[in-house]
Amino acid sequence: MIKRATDEIRPGMIVNLGIGLPTRVLDHLDANLAVCLHSENGIAGVGPSLSNNDADRNLIDAGGTYVSTLPGTSFFDSAVSFSLVRRGRLDLTVLGAFQVAANGDLANWKIPELFTPGPGGAIELAQKARRVVVLTTHQDKRGRSKIVKECSLPLTAAGCVDRIYTDMAVLDVTKKGIVLREIAEGLSVDEVVAATDATLIVPDTGVVTF
């Protein structure tokens, strides 16, 4: 699914990849692709990650990975970094999720009484990036669907998600609901539908396998 999500990133884009799974999209990306990666802690033009031996102690991305610069990289403070986000200069953000609802609501910062890491930059990214893509496992560790009719967890942003990539499927959030576009090899449409809490719209034209 991580590899599948690399299709989202096109030359010329300004892109922010969330902490965790989304950042791993980079492992599958053509290193020569002319794309500008933004990191919340104040970089436009994040370069390849570095091992601890090669690391610059003052150069990390928002997830704490040691990174490098590229020709054209800029550094700025946190107010400028989020000015860039809120002003709508991000073409794409790829975020993780606790839950995504049929109407595109996203919950990914708070599980009350259990785990509340805090929102970090996710609220602004989800609300203001021109395209919001979620990359997540289809189900949580206890086997419950993360693609839900309605979010039971506190929201990060309402109606913000455009597309979801999971280990089971590629899904588009539309005005009519969630449309099943692709399923993972070895799965049937019925299996994906059964593993999903939200009602899935299966197009007459069929579903591709990835």
Partner: peptide, 18 residues
């Protein structure tokens, strides 16, 4: 925070900066 010995106020990161 969970044990309520520390009060935590969360802010969206860019809103905190601003």
């Amino acid at each position: 925070m969970n044990e309520k010995v520390l009060e935590v106020e969360f802010c969206a990161q860019g809103i905190l900066a601003e």
